[in-house]
Design a binder for these strands. Sequence first.
DNA 1: ACTCTCCCTTGATACATATCATTCTACGGG
DNA 2: CCCGTAGAATGATATGTATCAAGGGAGAGT
Lengths: 236, 236
Amino acid sequence: MGSTLQNPACQHCKDRFSSVFCKAEQCNLEEIDQAKVCSVYKKGQVIFHEGAYPFGVYCINDGKIKLSHSGDDGREQIIRLVKAGDIMGYKALLSNERYTATATALEDSSICFIPKDLFMSILQKDAALSFEMMRILSSELRKAELKITHLAQKPVRERLAETLLFIKETYGLEEDGHTLSVRLSREEIANLVGTATESAIRLLSEFKKDGMIELEGKKIRLLDIHQIVKTANLQD
Amino acid sequence: MGSTLQNPACQHCKDRFSSVFCKAEQCNLEEIDQAKVCSVYKKGQVIFHEGAYPFGVYCINDGKIKLSHSGDDGREQIIRLVKAGDIMGYKALLSNERYTATATALEDSSICFIPKDLFMSILQKDAALSFEMMRILSSELRKAELKITHLAQKPVRERLAETLLFIKETYGLEEDGHTLSVRLSREEIANLVGTATESAIRLLSEFKKDGMIELEGKKIRLLDIHQIVKTANLQD
DNA sequence: ACTCTCCCTTGATACATATCATTCTACGGG
DNA sequence: CCCGTAGAATGATATGTATCAAGGGAGAGT
């Protein structure tokens, strides 16, 4: 468990305008505000575990989280990157099943927990919120299906380039306008791409040699985004 | 377009108990019943095309449909198999985007079309239907994420075995209790597995040699399901 | 400052799978 | 009925990627 601290009000949450709840009715927001519990999780800490039963949804106040499956042979597959304003854990809750993924903090994160019963009851009466949930689910599903196609049809090189762009889209860049603002291990990058760690390393080195990126420990600087897009070979 | 014919009433649709609409309120069902248009599509006919704008959702009355992406190099990736009682086209509708997949009839099929406005307005007022939609979306998302993990981590042999089981789960078996009740080309099977057609053919031959299956044209008989499960190496 | 450990890196090799080429088969139309 | 064509099957080969093995570097804790 993360350590509990003073709950920031949802109405003042810095990402309230981009989150699901921006569509929720004000009275429901207040209700959530009173029931939620906000905690801080340290980098590397697990928020919930694959196989466990869900008791609510998590709303990221601040921080970065990875959601990952553990494959049959124990290898991790990163399914989703979660950022401030996003929610997680809703899939298991809605389909009334156990978590199918493990949530791990990529850096120190502040996360609100909203109890299941409350979330579900508000979902019943707040059509706008329901709608927004469906929109999110649809969008996630679309992304997942695209990923399936790419995994099945694209070589690792293209998928790695695509992943770099995806990380950039998700977490953005630092002030210099080049450095990815998240530190991932090579293994994590590989588990995002769906390849072996060594392959990811080798290809990153190639990208570097080609002048597309710059590597400095876990810092990755995207130097030539145009070239990366070309390497990713995106057309849909 | 498929040829229009006398609309069967939703209330009498043979799969009404297993479809989304089983949760919908009766009055809404009647409303749908009046507005929907039912058509018959011949095997191979396209119901909707990737890139087109959605004008409603499709509910399968009878038949079998494949939903597929066209990859960058034009190779097809089959995303989903649709059966009677299922709906399709909701993802694009909900996220208000164009279709990301093409729907093609695998055999002659009878399909109802429900106009966008009606569907959306009923979704607004019918919480139970909304809930069911979220349940479906969550479940699809869960399946998609599992598929991602398997594509990234499992060899083709295991994925092929898994696919055979998946086809069986989706469309069931013929009266003999062994034959898959859908005829797919080798290429379609490969596009479901995410591999080259030749690889799928080769592995099917191996499965046959190992006594797991029997092949007769497009008929596939599952002889030793236990062995197929073992080959699929499922544990989650 | 120094070790210890973890992660990164690089190289050598093996293997699964894609690709190309060819033959075989079955089916539908003239 | 036979030909033509599309799909299926099989073989030969190429290649991308995983795996195994070993070295190198950087940060954490003592």
